[in-house]
Amino acid sequence: MIRLFVPQELNPGAALPLDPGQSRYLAAVMRLAVGDELALFNGRDGEWRARITTLGKRNVTVTPEAKTRPQAPGSDLDLIVALVKRGRLETIVEKAAELGAARVRPVITQHTNADRVRLERLQAIAVEAAEQTGRLDVPKVFEPLKLEKLLAGWETGRHLLFCDEAGDAAPLIDALREAPGGAWAILVGPEGGFSPAERDRLRTLSFAIPVSLGPRILRADTAAISAMTLWQAALGDWRP
Rank of each mutant, 00 (worst) to 15 (best):
L160K: 06
S206G: 07
V60N: 03
G236S: 09
N59C: 02
L150E: 05
V107H: 07
A224R: 06
N59S: 08
W231F: 14
I108C: 05
R216W: 03
A97H: 02
P7S: 12
S212Q: 10
R216H: 04
L99N: 00
V138S: 03
F5E: 06
K67I: 14
P73R: 08
R118N: 04
G43T: 05
A28C: 04
R103D: 10
D78E: 10
L151M: 15
I217K: 13
A101W: 08
T222Q: 13
S23K: 04
P106F: 08
A166Y: 14
P64I: 15
T112P: 00
E47T: 11
F194C: 02
G193N: 04
V107F: 05
N59R: 07
A101Y: 07
A28N: 07
R116P: 00
A102N: 06
I173S: 04
A227L: 13
F5N: 09
A114G: 04
I52F: 06
A114V: 11
C163F: 13
L83Y: 01
Q22A: 09
A126F: 03
D115I: 08
D45E: 14
G189D: 11
I80Y: 04
R177C: 00
T156N: 07
H159S: 14
R199G: 00
A185G: 03
A14Q: 15
E94F: 06
F162T: 10
A179R: 03
I217L: 13
P215W: 12
N42L: 01
R86Q: 14
L202E: 05
V6Y: 00
R88M: 05
I217N: 09
M228Y: 05
A82I: 02
K95R: 15
T63P: 00
D237W: 12
P12C: 02
K140A: 03
